[in-house]
Computed example of a mutant assay.
Amino acid sequence: MVNTNRPLEGIRVIDLTRFVSGAYTGTLLAMLGADVIKVEVPTEGDPYRNQGTAFVDGESALFTALNVGKRSVMLDLRSADGLSALEALLATADVFIENGRPGSLKKLGLDSASVTARHPNIVYGSISGYGQHGADAGRGGFDLILQAEGGLMSVTGEPDSGPVKVGVPVLDIGSAVSCALGIVAALYRRTANDGTGAVVSSSLLEFAVSTFSSIAPAHFVNGDVPGRIGSHSPTFAPYGAYRASDGHIVLAGAGSEDLWHRLCEAIEARELLEDSRFTTNADRVGHLEDLIAELEFRFVRHNRTYWIAKLSEFGVPAAEVRDLGQVLASAQVEALGQVQVDPAHPGGQKIIGAPIQIDGPLPFPGPAPRLGEHTDQVLAELHVLKRP
């Protein structure tokens, strides 16, 4: 019987990826129960094995976090034997994933057209910086590069701060989730139809553009091009971050005029309701700097705990701005089971679990593999007697 919260159990994935976006795609599939076989080149393997600022037992914690639940096979794809072994693996696979530059695998016969011609049942997944077609398709793309060219840096930061990148590799993670979603959809279609696979692709640029889904309509209608908007909304007010006596809170007090009235009651600033600068949402947006000054003048009188309790009492959505340590230690994150501990690791190494639940939290997928740890095991499964 298939474990209900390991829905991809029985699916085999050949993972020829490196770096964040590709590696995280494979990890999501492993978290969902797939047998993910990570193919690495001899000697150094995935570059992330030796990168980052934290190491556990000589292994990069960055690599470990991005590759849990996989098996590692070392193959020299510059040799005929290595390619032959990979071909044998592909013959047993349901999914093949890669994140090389478009066209870079063609000389090895591992591009989507070649692989799907030989193995029509395979779902072929690709992640790239700029997509598989177009004038920029051949360019390499890292998260920072696409945050710039995908528009995110143009709207991030304060108006006078200069361009600011998002503090996490949001495009790497987002394109990985998109690719994994496409792969699962293609597997469903394969099962529902005639068993034929598909070519799935995602890119950092496409995900970057998708993040503007709630902002682009104003551009399409009015030609509006937003600039850096900082921690406040260009459309609603009050909706942003405000200083309290011991840090910042965020306030979503613009959902309705009723919320604005309740906010003024909560902070004992009923006089703002009579101020013509703040009569409507449009007025408040038009006088945003004045509004921020008026609200912060009151918020700095008390700490965040006081204000969160007070605003909650009046039904005004608000939250404190937390750092990573506070987030990971929070009761809610603990309740969701998003921080998982490797039960086999002597130090209890922790990872961030999948951002989805199926009949509860997905189980720990297993540790990240040592370089080539499963070469003999996997090749023996293919009746190969020695390493290529």
Rank of each mutant, 00 (worst) to 15 (best):
N3L: 13
P7I: 00
E9R: 11
G10C: 01
G10L: 08
I11V: 11
I14K: 06
L16S: 04
T17E: 07
T17A: 05
R18K: 14
S21M: 03
S21L: 08
G22Q: 04
G22N: 03
T27K: 12
L28R: 08
D35H: 08
V39P: 00
E40G: 08
E40Q: 04
E40H: 07
G45R: 01
Y48Q: 15
N50H: 14
T53A: 15
F55V: 01
F55N: 02
V56Q: 12
D57C: 01
T64C: 12
A65R: 01
N67W: 03
K70Y: 08
L75N: 03
D76T: 00
R78P: 11
A85Q: 11
L86H: 09
E87M: 06
A88S: 06
A91C: 07
V95S: 02
I97H: 03
E98H: 05
G100A: 15
G100D: 05
R101F: 04
L105F: 14
L108M: 12
L110K: 02
A117R: 13
H119Q: 15
P120D: 00
V123G: 09
G131Y: 06
G131D: 07
D136S: 13
D136Y: 15
L146S: 01
E149A: 10
G150Q: 02
L152Y: 04
V155N: 05
P159H: 10
D160R: 08
D160C: 12
K165F: 13
K165G: 12
V166C: 06
V166L: 08
G167D: 06
P169L: 06
I173E: 12
S175N: 10
A180R: 07
I183F: 10
L187D: 00
R189N: 13
A198H: 05
S201Q: 15
L205Y: 09
T211C: 03
S213I: 15
S214V: 13
P217R: 02
F220S: 04
F220K: 04
V225H: 09
P226Q: 07
G227I: 06
G230A: 01
G230R: 01
S233N: 07
F236E: 13
S245W: 05
D246S: 00
H248A: 07
I249H: 11
V250R: 11
G255H: 09
S256A: 11
D258I: 03
L259Y: 13
W260T: 05
C264A: 11
A266R: 02
A266G: 07
A269Y: 08
R270A: 13
E271H: 13
R277P: 05
R277Q: 09
G286Y: 12
E289M: 10
L291E: 03
L291C: 07
I292M: 09
I292S: 05
A293Y: 10
R301V: 04
T305H: 14
A309D: 13
F314L: 12
G315I: 02
D323T: 06
V327E: 10
A331Q: 14
A331C: 12
A335M: 09
L336R: 15
D342P: 01
A344G: 15
H345F: 07
P346K: 04
I351G: 01
I356W: 14
L362D: 06
P365W: 09
P365Q: 11
P365S: 08
A368P: 07
L371R: 09
E373Q: 11
T375P: 03
L379G: 03
L379V: 00
A380R: 12
L382V: 05
L385H: 14
